[in-house]
Amino acid sequence: MKSRGRARAYANIALIKYWGKRDEKLVLPMNSSLSLTIDCFYTETEVIFRKDVDRDYFYLNDKLQGKDTTEKVSKFLDLFRKAAGLNLSAVVKSRNYVPTAAGLASSASGFAALAAAANVASGLNLDNRQLSIYARQGSGSAARSIYGGFVEWKKGSSHQDSYAVPIDDAQWDIGIVIVMVNSMEKLISSREGMKRTVDTSPFYKVWVESAEEDLKHIKIAIRNRDFKKTGLIAERNGLKMHAIMLGANPPFCYWEPDSLKVMQIVRQLRREGIYCYFTLDAGPNVKILCRLSESHKIKDRLIQFFDPDQVIIAKPGPGITIL
């Protein structure tokens, strides 16, 4: 058995959102979702199972993490230890090339990289579908970061059939421009925000039905390589997700004034014939779906209002890489 594994996984941007769980423990979603894996944000993680340590140690960006964060990692590693019949503690070293907890899918790349590294270190040799099921239990959106390009996470009916599948490699002039409005950790975590919305928003039930419809239509648009339709569906789906948060009790919103400024710029660009579409996850940062060939024009417009370091061009990214 190889007791050491190292892997890289990339963040993904949800175009049809996942927002809400029907099973908190197994992380089973209320609705299926769809994302685009991107190349600029990623996590590299090494897992070493060792006989000479008495507990798990977790280092993030070279800093030893405290009890609560380490406990999450330990619980996740227990899935692999149990399946492999392994009774060893681990040293985990992770480096995040994504701002943590800022609505930029750091938990997706984080748990996908951890799953892939633990898979190698434990000797389980799970295939990508099984790995997606494992990654999902760390962070729902991590199920999608197992693959590159456009990826669908099927909600499934049980633990075993809720996993992600690749649907298109996105190699048809697709890009994302990310505007880092604020890279600080958000005040309301995705977990807390989801639960509050599911429990209290009167609009939630309609959102779930509507998201499933959006998914059906965006998959047809992607299959037809219909960029405008893909973008319009993604933009509307994202706005609907944020609308249901405004209906929660108490209501909450992740947007900041600069988030709205970016949305206005995107709408102006469309009026000028540069077709691009915005989406936001649980955070203020805006992702703009565009044609990769027009991404520099979009960045040029944005840096009239934002610092150039705040505007990042991303290409479609690959699936997990074993290092």
Rank of each mutant, 00 (worst) to 15 (best):
P284Y: 05
P308K: 08
M263V: 13
I303T: 06
H217F: 15
K216T: 12
W207F: 13
P251L: 05
I133D: 02
Q65M: 12
M180K: 14
I313Y: 04
Y10S: 01
G273Q: 03
L15V: 11
L79F: 08
Y57K: 11
Q160G: 14
P202Q: 09
R8H: 13
K154E: 11
R196M: 11
R129L: 12
I220C: 12
K315G: 06
W153I: 04
V262Y: 01
L131N: 05
W255V: 12
M241C: 07
L26Q: 14
L269T: 03
K287G: 05
F80S: 01
T200L: 08
A105M: 06
I265P: 00
I146F: 02
N12W: 05
W172M: 01
L280F: 06
G149S: 07
S139I: 04
K2V: 15
D226I: 01
L289K: 03
Q160W: 14
D62L: 11
V179S: 05
G138F: 01
L269P: 02
N125I: 10
A84T: 09
S157A: 15
L302T: 01
V198Y: 01
Q171K: 11
R267W: 11
K240G: 10
L124Q: 02
D127A: 10
A83Q: 12
Q171E: 12
G140V: 00
L26N: 14
K297N: 12
Y97N: 10
V27H: 09
G148I: 00
A121I: 04
A116Y: 04
R271G: 14
K229D: 10
N61R: 07
V53N: 09
A83L: 13
P318L: 03
T197M: 08
L104M: 11
S210T: 15
R136T: 00
R236Q: 13
P316N: 05
N125Y: 11
V181T: 07
L302E: 00
N87T: 13
D161E: 10
T321P: 09
Q268H: 14
M194V: 10
Y59F: 11
I146R: 02
K82V: 14
D309S: 15
I233A: 00
